[in-house]
């Protein structure tokens, strides 16, 4: 074969390889993509002009008050609802047009869990495993997860408590070992101990390169598992923030009650950031060093002193209100 033809062939081969890599790279960069998404119900609720992406291997937390549009967004991702306009893709697969195809890479945990009540947990998990192709690894994962979450799989589902059903839902989702996890309020109904186990399981999944999209009311689980968080209210995405950026700007909030009104005046004069001022109590926000606060507090009579729950959560409460 003449040299020029060899070189032509090898150039073509290289071009194809570069194209293939570009496609793979593109696929691996944006696992979930939501573009100008609109879905309105007849009564006016729904989601409006949603835009966001979740990169492969990253976790995206979705926060918002009840009725904000979190579950509607998840139903659109799952291909249960048809978008009025816009596009939802996972790994470049259209979630509505190719709704069966996209499920090959998704594990899903619904917000409201209802099972076929007359089956045992084991029968139900077997059914889900079979509907996913019944790989042997799924059964191994099932047994591991059942022991981690301490769930007896021989119990009839209709005899299970809400927390037990939640554990069953988590096992059904995680045993499948899919690339993308879509969870709607996953720890609702779990006790604090099991919430911690769940967070550890999710962190384990993340280490294995899974992409996570999770809606929640529990700020702790978003804080501990997600890189980015989106806030939705009344169907509109208000902001998307990275958790690390938020940490840089994080502040602490304390609730303080003093003995006399004048002491509150004194605290005001110490250039502290007082908010929500009542007769003898207030909240104080502190960013960075705490010295100024401690110094001021030594000079007043403190009746009660309490740190507010979580700082990042505090930062987001404003969006909720």
């Amino acid at each position: 074969m003449p040299e020029s033809r060899w070189s032509e062939k090898s150039t073509q081969y290289l071009e194809i390889q570069v194209l293939k890599e570009e496609v793979l790279l593109r696929k691996s960069e944006e696992m979930i993509e939501v573009k100008e998404l609109n879905k309105l119900y007849s009564e006016g609720r729904g989601v409006r002009n949603l835009n966001f992406q979740v990169d492969a291997g990253k976790a995206f937390g979705f926060l918002g008050p009840n009725g904000a549009g979190k579950t509607t967004t998840i139903r659109l991702l799952m291909g249960f609802l048809k978008p009025d306009s816009g596009r939802v893709t996972i790994n470049e697969i259209d979630c509505w047009k190719e709704k069966a195809e996209v499920k090959k890479i998704i594990s899903y945990l619904p917000g409201e869990l209802h099972f076929m009540e007359s089956l045992t947990a084991l029968d139900f998990l077997d059914l889900i495993a079979r509907m996913h192709g019944n790989k042997r690894q799924i059964k191994r994962n099932r047994d591991y997860l059942a022991s981690a979450l301490e769930l007896d799989l021989k119990i009839l589902i209709r005899k299970m408590s809400k927390g037990m059903k939640q554990k069953l839902g988590i096992i059904a989702a995680l045993m499948l070992d899919k690339k993308v996890l879509i969870f709607d309020e996953p720890t609702s109904g779990l006790d604090p101990l099991m919430q911690k186990v769940f967070i550890d399981l999710i962190l384990g999944e993340k280490k294995r390169g899974k992409t996570l999209f999770m809606s929640s009311h529990q700020f702790v689980e978003i804080d501990r598992t997600c890189e980015h968080v989106g806030i939705i209210r009344e169907g509109e995405l208000l902001t998307i923030q990275s958790i690390s950026q938020l940490r840089d700007a994080e502040h602490q909030t304390f609730e303080i009650e003093v003995e006399k009104e004048e002491e509150l005046e004194f605290l005001k004069q110490r250039q502290l950031n007082l908010v929500n001022i009542q007769e003898k109590s207030c909240m104080i926000r502190v960013t960075g060093e705490m010295d100024k606060l401690w110094l001021a507090l030594t000079q007043v009579h403190v009746i009660s002193f309490r740190q507010r729950s979580l700082e990042l959560e505090e930062a987001f409460m404003d969006f909720y209100r």
Binding site: M78, F80, K99, A100, E101, K103, K104, I106, S107, Y108, P110, E112, L113, H114, F115, M116, I128, M131, H132, G133, G169, A172
Partner: peptide, 14 residues
């Protein structure tokens, strides 16, 4: 009662 959700989350078509 949403019990169809888990079945429809599998690759089995509607």
């Amino acid at each position: 009662d949403c019990s169809l959700a888990l079945l429809l989350s599998t690759p089995v078509s509607r």
